[in-house]
Simulated scan of single mutants.
Amino acid sequence: MSDLADQVVARVVPMFTAEADPARAEGQRAYMRDQFPYLGLTLPQVRKMSKTLMKSVPPAGPDDLREIALRCWEMPAREYQYFACEILRADALGPSFLVTLRTLITTKSWWDTVDPLATRIVGDLVRAHRSLAATMDEWSGDDNVWLARTAVLHQLHWGVETDTRRLFSYCTAQAGHRDFFIRKAIGWALRHYARTDPSAVRAYVDAHRDALSPLSVREATKHL
């Protein structure tokens, strides 16, 4: 057990509970299709309190962050999972942390935690440790929708560093997927990369229009 993790968990619970808004919590729970209970905190509130809390304790290492995140994932209120997503920083992690991220992605899974983990934490970790791209290759074909979505989205903020071969191959491999979250991820990833290379995205969509879902095509070409 980490002393720092104990400190953080002991502080975050009363901090978040003090700002709880039961009326807002009901609306949040309904919006998220009754997937999770809520305290009624807004995301800006979570972000502000997360920064305040983490500045008040010693710097957290990978082992501390792992324990904090896993303990937050065990808590019922969704805001604690948001807190974990906020405090994970790829520059404080190592390649082995991807195992923990897989656990977080495949546990209490929904887009609200998977997307920040995919686009920021996993994405930054793979960019810093390129050997992890082989794991993204595995995830891109995984039966777990959230792992596949993470693989498609992990390069979202890479810009000119994007490995287009991987991006396009992941999209092609999942083009016929029936799940909304995969179809949406394909469109989102392509649309975002179109900011960097619109001609490449246009050419890809034109070549694969028959295989891609209408949702993926619509999202990918929204700003072309």
Rank of each mutant, 00 (worst) to 15 (best):
D124F: 10
L117S: 12
L93V: 05
T106M: 00
T150D: 07
M54Y: 05
D115N: 09
F83M: 01
A134L: 13
D64K: 06
Y82G: 02
A175S: 13
E138M: 10
L98V: 11
I121S: 05
I87S: 06
T119Y: 09
A69V: 06
M136Q: 09
A60G: 04
Q174D: 03
S140C: 07
S131W: 13
D112H: 04
A128K: 12
R127P: 10
H129W: 09
E161Q: 15
R66L: 07
V99C: 10
R165G: 15
P116E: 01
M136T: 05
H129M: 05
A118Y: 00
A151F: 06
L101Q: 07
I186V: 11
S96F: 03
D124R: 15
Y170I: 06
L132P: 14
Q155R: 08
M136V: 08
F97W: 10
A69I: 09
I182S: 01
V145E: 13
D143E: 14
W111S: 03
C171H: 10
A118N: 02
S96E: 14
W73H: 10
M75C: 00
D142T: 01
E74L: 11
R78T: 01
T107G: 06
P95E: 08
A175T: 08
V152P: 09
F83R: 00
E86Q: 13
G61H: 13
C72A: 07
V160H: 15
V99H: 12
F181R: 03
D63V: 14
Y82W: 15
A90Y: 14
R127L: 15
L98R: 09
C171K: 10
V152D: 08
R102F: 05
T107Q: 09
E86C: 12
L101V: 06
I182T: 11
V99K: 13
A92S: 11
A92G: 10
R102Y: 04
L53H: 08
L70G: 03
L125K: 04
A92T: 09
I121D: 05
K55E: 14
F83E: 02
Q174W: 02
L156V: 06
L98K: 09
I186Y: 04
V57I: 14
V160Y: 15
G94Q: 07
L125R: 06
F168G: 05
E74P: 02
T135R: 15
V152H: 07
F181C: 02
R120S: 14
H129A: 05
P58H: 08
T172Y: 00
D163S: 11
D91T: 11
A134N: 11
P59R: 01
L156E: 03
S109D: 02
C85Y: 02
K108Q: 13
Q155H: 11
T135P: 06
F181S: 00
V160D: 15
V99M: 10
A173F: 04
D137R: 12
M75G: 00
L104V: 05
R66M: 08
A173Q: 14
Y80D: 05
T106Q: 01
A173W: 04
P95F: 09
E138R: 12
A134S: 13
V57Q: 08
F83V: 02
E67C: 01
L153E: 08
I182E: 03
A77R: 15
G61V: 12
R149N: 06
R89S: 13
S109E: 03
S56L: 00
E161A: 15
E67W: 00
